[in-house]
Amino acid sequence: MGKRVLLVEDEPNIIEAIRFILSRDGWVVDTHSDGSTAVDTVLSAVPDVLVLDVMLPGKSGFDILRELRGASATADLPILMLTAKGQGRDRELAERYGANRFMTKPFSNSEVLETVNALQAGVTDQA
C-alpha cells in the first residue's frame, strides 16, 4: 500500500526536488501551492505525512498549521515545516503551534527523506 505525503509549497523547483527525493523512496507525492485553499485540500484527503512551507501566497504556513491542529481529523497528523527565513522566532512559532518537525532551507535531501519516514513510523520525538 502507498505511503502518501502532501507537499504544500509554492516554489516549482523545490516542489520538483522534494517530489523526486520522496517518490524514489516509494512515496506517493501530492502537491498544493496555494496557501488560502491548503486547509481544505488537506481535510478532503488526509495524507500520511504533511510537508508545509511557511511563506505561501494567500495564507501563512503558521495559520494553516494552527487551523489543522484545531480540526479533529488532523490534530495528530505528522507535520514537517519548512522555512527559508531561518530565524529563531519561526522555530518557536512552529513548536508552539504544534509542528512535529522543523527544517530550514536549504536542506539535505537525505535528512528530508529520513524525517518524513520517521514521522510516518510514528517517531514523533522532537529532533
Partner: peptide
C-alpha cells in the same frame, strides 16, 4: 527585510543544493 533577504537567498540555494545532491 532581513527575513525577506534570507528567504530570497535561501530559496534559490535550496534548489541548487537539492538538485546538485541528486
Amino acid at each position: 527585510f532581513l527575513s525577506q533577504i534570507s528567504h530570497e537567498l535561501r530559496t534559490p540555494m535550496t534548489s541548487v543544493r537539492a538538485f546538485s545532491e541528486i
